[in-house]
Design a protein around this nucleic acid. Sequence first.
RNA 1: UGGGAUGUAGCCAAGGGGUAAGGCACCAGACUUUGACUCUGGCAUUCCAAGGUUCGAAUCCUUGCAUCCCAG
Length: 360
Amino acid sequence: MSKEKVMIGMSGGVDSSVAAAVLLEKGYEVIGVTMKIWPEINADTKQAEGGCCSLSAVDDARRVAYKLGIPYYVMNFQDVFENKVIDYFKDEYLKGKTPNPCIACNRYVKFEAMLQKALSMGIDYVATGHYAIIEYDKNLKRYLLKKSVTQKKDQTYALYNLNQHQLSKILMPIGDYTKDHVREIAKDLDLDVASKPDSQEICFVEDNNYAKFIKENTDKKVKSGYFVDTEGNLLGKHKGIIHYTIGQRKGLGIAFGKPMYVVGLDIENNNVILGKNDETFSKSLIAGDLNFIMIDKLEEPMEVKAKIRYSAKEADATIYPLEDGKAEVVFKLPQRAITPGQSVVFYSDDIVIGGGVITL
RNA sequence: UGGGAUGUAGCCAAGGGGUAAGGCACCAGACUUUGACUCUGGCAUUCCAAGGUUCGAAUCCUUGCAUCCCAG
């Protein structure tokens, strides 16, 4: 009987490297792959310290693969990445929304394009170094996505879009390991990446200057406009709506004696609305583009814990299905800076119920 | 040109003879697989200018200069 085959997405970081090692140990036939998502030109200039998908990571990943004795390939996913992540990212910002590119990348690139590729090659599974757990629940007859044992590193927030078919084909071997344990394993295996810092920031934007990136990569004009208060009074001039997001304080460049925050983006008038901190709180939101994992469909109101952004505390909320396929989320306590474009993810204890994109 | 007021960091602003508070902004770091939030640290050898009094002046005196308001 031949071994089951797994394609592991290797970013060159510790997590995916150790994930590969763990799969080997579990007896899978492991094939290492790094997704090439960057245009040719930038391949050389991109620094090694970049994000989860930075290209320079190829060298690191290749070295790890060599050490583990597994085949390694670089596969080209530039087109999907550009369409589904970069374009989406730019468009959303230009529309006054605040996108989450990591969620889009997971959804369309890693677990759609890469998974399809793997299956078409006769490979059984795709694996990643995400901190999350996938489990089949016999009672519910569904695959469930559950939080990593390392609460602090849990990445389920960015994975809520997975469907049953995808979940049945995905392995996340590191979900029940702690970060420290992962680093130890890397050390024991004598992997060079053992002490590589965790990735952060947007992987395709240099200097973390996303606004500059958008301006350089769009035909649309980014026009400056005015800061106004909630009553419509003029407060000053802003650099262009893409520079701002709800709840933002820094970078306004104006002094008021009190900290001021962005409380709204008025794309119609190209205004950025400013207010005090307590004006950033709100109690409900509408979410669209929903995906459910634990349940098939939201048919009646449900009590959940909801997360408004990647690093937010979960908050008690009730979700109500709406006629148009969307859902209204009503929080027990007001939440700070609910931001259109970001995702809400619903939990029941450590199980991901599902999630959606905040539209209002 | 008369009368009044004010000049302290990019903005606001304490201090009224004893060696420059604070807030906002800004910068740096921490946190973070998105954007943000948050946290920590930094940020006026100098108080419009020039003289003077004093052991000692942002603070008192003098003279300029600038700005604002009311008259003309």
